[in-house]
Nucleic acid binder design. Structure first.
Lengths: 195, 195
DNA sequence: AATGCGACCGACTGATCGGTCTGTATAAAT
DNA sequence: ATTTATACAGACCGATCAGTCGGTCGCATT
């Protein structure tokens, strides 16, 4: 029954993609390994061949979604872009790569495995790195005098919370509608509600 | 072993309070009925005396948190308050009553029981009513010319998403810090980031 | 004083969970 | 051609889950 190496990697990708969607929609505990197998079209034995445990799988996915997704960011933006332009680009990017965000499942994961467990530490580290990367974008906006509100860390938390919270309402939208929604929401945040 | 009626109601309140916190922090599936019993200081049999099922308990809590919490709202604000002042008040109110919001657990709940199941319909109805109530606040802000951005429904979704998303970052804060954070975030939303 | 009923307990059940293990077919190495 | 390593499949295990049920205790009614 052995597949070629390429086929095996494809199987692994199928598992990751299936699990990513399920974790995001159903949460960590509510997603069973059997669910993932059904969605990925493999057996439980096959899944455990690629990943040691459910925790392992989740951390792998989180790392890919949060860390690895920054990799193309620096190339996607050029140095001449204003922080505001970058934020609009980030909104698109958020819909594209984190359309079903793992934040919610992540918090559940932490409370389940414990923040000081090895798995918890690994996940929190990934999250921290992601937030710090975002904070650099915000800091640039402040440094250049584009934005106001002194504290970059606090501002980052608010903006990321905003984008995360917005995702609650785009589940039933198509991707283009979701992007429009996020762009409009970004405009709102930049310009404010008040006349 | 029978307690008086007052004591029984207290037991029920204990269960609700314990379950509310656990559902909010751990999610729906990850919170077991045993967890709730331990936190509430009662037995599983006792819990099932007060609630028919886990679904039943969750819907009861959601109804109390979302619907019943509006009840004092109209008295808390007087007619002379601007929509902006009301929004600041709502920020406080959000921290006070929904400090550990059930939104996340709610989505998980829906995906678990199905949006068209009876339990799903009941929960979604509660959520809808809550959002519509909030939309009236937003509509007032638009009607009075205080706020810009034509679509009240869309604007409501964005603001509620914002408040919901912000709650990710206040788990480790005290209540006063959380309120300060929310007030600052509300100011941000009203005035915008841009200079 | 007797009795009924509400509040509660905890052992139990069947289903499902995450994880293990053995078996097997085949690609890759020799 | 033979052996080895890999990529699965699926039966199986102990733990835990939501929910049930018979029993106990004591307030409340008569």
């Amino acid at each position: 029954m052995k597949k070629s190496k390429d086929e095996a990697e494809q199987t692994k990708r199928d598992i990751v993609e299936a699990a990513k969607g399920l974790f995001a929609v159903k949460g960590y505990a509510a997603t069973s390994m059997s669910d993932i197998c059904s969605a990925a079209g493999c057996s439980r034995g096959g899944l455990y061949h690629h990943f040691d445990s459910k925790e392992d799988l989740f951390i792998y996915i989180a790392d890919q979604a949060f860390t690895a997704s920054w990799e193309n960011w620096d190339q996607a933006i050029d140095g001449t872009m204003t922080a505001t332009e970058q934020l609009y680009k980030y909104a698109d990017y958020f819909v594209d790569t984190l359309e079903k965000p793992l934040n919610k499942a992540g918090e559940e994961f932490i409370s389940r495995v414990g923040a000081d467990s090895e798995a918890g530490q690994r996940f929190l580290g990934t999250m921290m790195a992601y937030m710090q990367r975002f904070e650099r974008l915000v800091q640039a906006g402040l440094d250049r005098g584009e934005w106001k509100g002194g504290n970059a860390q606090e501002l980052s938390m608010m903006i990321l919370g905003y984008f995360s919270g917005l995702s609650d309402h785009i589940q039933m939208m198509g991707k283009e509608d979701a992007k429009r929604f996020y762009r409009k929401a970004t405009k709102l945040l930049l310009e404010g509600i008040q006349k």
